[in-house]
Design a binder for these strands. Structure first.
Lengths: 131, 131
DNA sequence: GTATATGCAAACAATTTGCACGCCT
DNA sequence: AGGCGTGCAAATTGTTTGCATATAC
């Protein structure tokens, strides 16, 4: 059986640019935002290519996909960390590991765990200050 | 200013049926599944009505929306609990509060927290048993 | 050389919305 | 009576895909 990881991937300029863009920001952008940024470097890149490469990068474990309502958002940080979503300004903000302490799972041993995603919803520092 | 909660809602049979369906299951169904169930009671109910009522029920805090990739899933349980998503069978399984111990947030006080969602991804008991 | 990747546009799937009518309150 | 809710169908939005060509290896 052929797993997706067994496909021999080429290193394309488009994919490199997309990964660079994601690693250079912490705003957890949408595919469309990434597309607009990528067009600054590759004016005729297509949105389809952006989607295809985001999928490949995710399969490779080089980026993370964040489900935020309808749209997917993407994250170039793959070390363990969590997210805070501000209901006021809609930003997604990184939450560091040491801001969530004592987390321990006690699931039955028949479950195996790949990853734990935590999404905290609330109002961020900036929006709280402005109100 | 008029907030959505200030709109005077009527109690419609459609909305009641949809809430009943959600409270009677723990499979965290999609809008489409809810629609199919609702049609058994109200044959000519429309999918648009299902979506509209799911939105209202969510605004009311009577149900929870779970973002699972492309499709939204809905949960009639609103007490604090978490979710486990099996990558093998795609089920979403409830994780009880006492299965996640010691969780404590240490965010800066300038952040206010509404809710904490935890999604554990892995392989469930059934799928692990079958492999 | 050959198979993967691309750009483009069309297709898709999930959700939302405009409208005329219906039914709570 | 008045306005929110409904059914229906069309529109919208985010994402995927088929195809011919380009490119990495």
């Amino acid at each position: 059986m052929l797993k997706s990881n067994d496909i021999k991937r080429r290193n394309t300029y488009q994919r490199k640019i997309i990964l660079d863009i994601l690693r250079d920001t912490d705003i957890h952008p949408t595919a469309d935002w990434i597309y607009e940024q990528a067009r600054k470097k590759i004016p005729n890149i297509s949105l389809g290519t952006v989607y295809r490469n985001l999928k490949i990068l995710k399969e490779n474990g080089q980026i993370i996909e964040i489900n935020d309502g309808k749209q997917s958002r993407f994250d170039g940080r793959i070390d363990e960390h969590y997210h805070f979503k501000c209901v006021s300004c809609d930003r997604i903000i990184d939450v560091e590991r040491d801001e969530v302490v004592g987390l321990k799972l006690k699931l039955d041993k028949s479950y195996s765990v790949d990853r734990v995603d935590i999404l905290i919803t609330g109002v961020c520092n900036i929006c709280n200050g402005e109100n």
